[in-house]
Write a protein that binds this DNA or RNA. Structure first.
Lengths: 206, 206
DNA sequence: ATTTCTAAGTTAAATTTATCACAAAACAAT
DNA sequence: ATTGTTTTGTGATAAATTTAACTTAGAAAT
């Protein structure tokens, strides 16, 4: 990935730390340590300390980390101390499930608009969102200054949608279509693909 | 990960190669090369050759790889030259979307049974599957010798479900709940978590 | 037949990533 | 006050991963 100094593989772990901190907080804990976090995440305490050391000093020797404080610091580092508006493109079964997902808001995200190209779907209300015509995608995303989008269209249409999104100013794309997207530098893409994960695991079976 | 010799990070890339090969095949191509695959995947040709070299020789110097042959070889390596029966636990919006997903079968997987704990859901038919009582989970999974499961329950219940699955003989778990599962060695777990991916990307924004 | 071009497989080098081990600090208990 | 315990942050070291470079082989063109 781009932005130098901190390796992307380190950045990729920060959201996991945040997730674990939030779980701990929900359980009523106030403090934790690299050892504790490491055990919960299945990684070494040293790695957690090393990762955090890229960004500053957040703990106290002898006592560890304040969950509240480290949470705040990580949220700031990851820029989720604000709420990002998101667009979702493709309201099939999966898009429907995502629109109904209640877990985004606390984590720095909210769905702002929802698109599809199917005339039978356009105008329908799903979880309080009116499905908009994909023809209005660029105008609407520009107007709302949306920087984050989720793609849940079929693989055949994903690249075309991607180009429209980038054209409209989207910088980060979470792609559920089973295809690698071609994007210019400066655009972030992450993939969600259960088949890939399943095949990864079956390697170890039998 | 466990199984020695081949690094897990290499194994993790094989399903991506397979995905790209299938896309190429659908486009009517017969042959490809490490350079071509690398460009499509955004990784170096050398890495693809190095990765494949862990498992044998699949190409021809000067001409590259037969898509059909390399596909077959990768399917064999990943053990998806058969179809794995899967269980799905938790039929909320997400579980519903997954049960209706048509893309598993060609890739080595099929859903065999579907569980929930909600009395209002048990007995309902979703995409041709009768939702079964989670109380019958262990017996049914043992009976069907199911080795692969997907967890789409709430985070609070994911660990408990995991233990039941492992007890019933499941070896590979695809977990959609936002929590790290504790499992004994020899059990594979992969995670699908859009929040983690989104937060990874927002690090690079603004 | 020879030359040219392409591309796999592989060894070596470079780079990246993870681990180790330790000094310094905080705190509790005596 | 001193001792013992815990745990951070970090520089040094080790391990891993990736890249680069090279040898070999196949195919096409002259």
């Amino acid at each position: 990935m781009e932005k130098n100094q901190v390796p992307d593989i380190v950045v990729a772990r920060l959201p996991l730390y945040l997730q674990t901190l939030k779980t701990l907080e929900n359980e009523g804990a106030y403090n934790t340590s690299s050892k504790d976090l490491g055990q919960k995440l299945g990684i070494s305490a040293a790695q957690i300390r090393k990762d955090l050391s890229h960004f500053g000093e957040f703990g106290k020797q002898g006592t560890g980390y304040s969950i509240k404080y480290l949470t705040e610091c990580l949220e700031e580092i990851l820029h989720v101390n604000k709420t990002w508006d998101m667009a979702l493109i493709g309201v099939g079964f999966l898009g429907h499930a995502i629109v109904n997902f209640q877990g985004f808001y606390n984590q720095g995200f909210r769905i702002k608009c929802v698109f599809d190209s199917d005339p039978n779907k356009i105008g329908q209300i799903v979880a309080g969102f009116e499905i908009m015509d994909i023809k209005n995608l660029e105008a609407t995303i520009k107007e709302n200054r949306i920087k984050v989008a989720m793609i849940t269209v079929h693989a055949e249409n994903a690249q075309e949608v991607t180009e429209k999104l980038i054209n409209a100013g989207v910088k980060s794309i979470l792609n559920y279509a089973p295809i690698v997207l071609k994007v210019p530098t400066g655009i972030q893409v992450q993939y969600i693909n259960p088949i890939i994960e399943l095949q990864h695991m079956t390697y170890y079976l039998e």
